[in-house]
Write a protein that binds this DNA or RNA. Structure first.
Lengths: 244, 244
DNA sequence: ACGACATGAAGTGTATACAATAAGATTGTA
DNA sequence: TACAATCTTATTGTATACACTTCATGTCGT
C-alpha cells in the first residue's frame, strides 16, 4: 500500500498541519487537486476513485473524501454508482451534444455583455492566458493546454457580470474536457490555435455581435472535431452481427 | 425535544423500516421533503436548519442529513456557513437579477426546440398542470401554486430534449421561488394567472418564435413585479442618517 | 472441461463518539 | 447600573468502527 502522501494543499508554504485555517481550505485544495487531475486527463473517464485510497493519499479521513466526491458528482465530473463507489464520469454521446448545445446558447449569449463590460486589465489578462495556452500547445503539453483553454472560457464568462451563468459555463467547460477525453482524436486539441486570439480582437473593438458569431463558429468547430457517437455496446448483439 | 417524527418517505405504502430499498430512496425523499418546504415558503429564507433536529425528525443520523444539506447547498437552496451550520439561502439582489437574466436567456432560447418537439400527450399534461396551478391560486393555496408554477417551467424545459439545460432551468426555478419569498409582495404571486395558458396556445400551434417572445415578456413581468433591492443594512450608519 | 455454488476479501453505507468552536449566560467589578 | 471577562452549553467538524453488499477466487459436481 504505497504510503506516499501528496501535499495537495501546496498553496500555503508548508507546516499547514491541521494548524492553519480550519480544514476548510484543505478541502477546497483537495477538491481542486482532484478536479484538475480529471480536467487534465491524468484521470481518465471510467477511472475508479476509491475512498480509502484517496483518504490515504490526502491524509484526511474518508468522511472528508466522501464530501468532496459528492461535490464532484454534482458537478458531473465523477459518477457515484450506488454500491460501486466513485469513478470519473464517462459522458454519453447525448450528454456531449447537450453540453455543446448549452455552451452555444449561454456562451454566445454572453458575448455582447462581455464586450460591453471588458476593460484593458481584463484584456491583458486574457491575452496572457491565451499566450500561455498557445505556448503549452506548442510545447506539446496537452494537459496544461486543455486546462488553460477551459479557464479562458471560464474567465470570459465571469466578465459578463452574471455569476450564476458564469458558474454554469465553468461547469460546462469542465465537462467539455471530459468529452474531449472520450470523443476527441488524440493529437487534435479542441480549440484551434488562434481562435481565442481572434475572439479577443473582436472584444477589444467592443464588437459584441462579431464576438458572438465567432464564438458560435468556434464552438461548432470544436464539436465538429469530435467523433460523438455512442461507443459500441459492451454486450453487443452477436446474433445481429453474425446474421449474414 | 418534540419527538414527533415525520414519515418523509411516505411514497412507499408503509413498513419501509430500513427494510425496503437501500436507504437511497429515503435520502431522495428527505431531500424532496426539505426542498419542497423551502420552495413552498414553509421554510423562509434565513431559517436555520440544525442537523440533529433534522436527523431526529427524519429518523436518520446526522451523517445522512449532512449529505442532503450539502446537496441542497450546491443547488443554492441552503447556505452552509462554516461553523454556523445550514440555513435557507437568502438571495442577494444581485443573485436575483442574475437568476432572472439566466432564465431569460435559457428558457426563451429553449422555446423553439420545445415547440418543435412537443406532442399531444405533453400538451395534455401541461394543460393539466396549468389547471391545477390556477385552481390552487383561486383556492388561496399560495404554497401549492408556487410549487406548481416552478414545476410547469421545469417540465417545459425538459421537453426541449436537452437534459443539461433542463436541470439548470429547474435549479433556476427553485431559486426563483426563494427570490419571490424575499423580494415579492405578499398576495401577489409571480406568474400571472393566465400566462401559462397563453404560452401553451403558442406551443400548441408550433409557433416557437411567438412562444419565445411570450416567455420573455412573461419572465419580465415576474421580475418587474418584484422589488429587487438590497435590504437596508442591519448596521446602518446613524451619523449619515442624522447628519442634517 | 465447463459451469454453478460457496467462501473470502474488499469497499462502501451508516451511525456513533469525541473534539473543537462559537454563541449565550452569568457573575464580578468599576 | 453597565460593561467586560469567563464559563457553560449548544452545535458543528472529523474520525473511527461496524454492518452490509458486491466482486473475485477456488472448489465441487456433472
Amino acid at each position: 500500500m504505497s504510503q506516499r502522501q501528496v501535499d495537495a494543499a501546496s498553496q500555503p508554504a508548508s507546516g499547514n498541519e491541521s494548524s492553519g485555517q480550519h480544514g476548510d481550505e484543505r478541502h477546497a485544495a483537495i477538491h481542486r487537486s482532484i478536479s484538475d487531475a480529471i480536467i487534465e486527463h491524468r484521470l481518465k473517464p471510467g477511472a475508479r476513485l476509491r475512498e480509502d485510497a484517496l483518504s490515504e493519499i490526502f491524509g484526511i479521513s474518508r468522511t472528508g473524501i466522501r464530501k468532496i466526491l459528492q461535490q464532484l458528482a454534482l458537478e458531473q465530473l465523477v459518477t457515484l454508482t450506488p454500491r460501486r463507489g466513485a469513478s470519473v464520469t464517462r459522458p454519453t454521446a447525448e450528454e456531449a451534444r447537450d453540453v455543446f448545445a448549452a455552451r452555444q446558447m449561454v456562451e454566445c449569449g454572453l458575448m455582447p455583455d462581455v464586450a460591453r463590460r471588458i476593460d484593458a486589465a481584463d484584456l491583458e489578462r486574457l491575452h496572457d492566458m491565451e499566450r500561455r495556452e498557445r505556448e503549452a500547445l506548442e510545447a506539446g503539453e496537452q494537459s496544461a493546454a486543455i486546462k488553460l483553454s477551459a479557464a479562458f472560457h471560464g474567465v470570459l464568462a465571469k466578465l459578463s457580470g452574471n455569476a450564476t451563468l458564469a458558474a454554469f459555463v465553468e461547469q460546462l467547460c469542465s465537462r467539455s474536457s471530459l468529452i474531449l477525453a472520450v470523443y476527441g482524436n488524440a493529437g487534435h486539441l479542441g480549440c484551434e490555435t488562434h481562435d481565442h486570439e481572434s475572439l479577443l480582437r473582436h472584444l477589444e473593438r467592443g464588437d459584441g455581435e462579431r464576438a458572438r458569431d465567432f464564438m458560435s463558429r468556434h464552438l461548432q468547430a470544436i464539436e465538429a472535431s469530435l467523433a460523438i457517437h455512442e461507443p459500441e455496446d459492451e454486450a453487443p448483439d452477436l446474433y445481429e452481427i453474425f446474421s449474414d
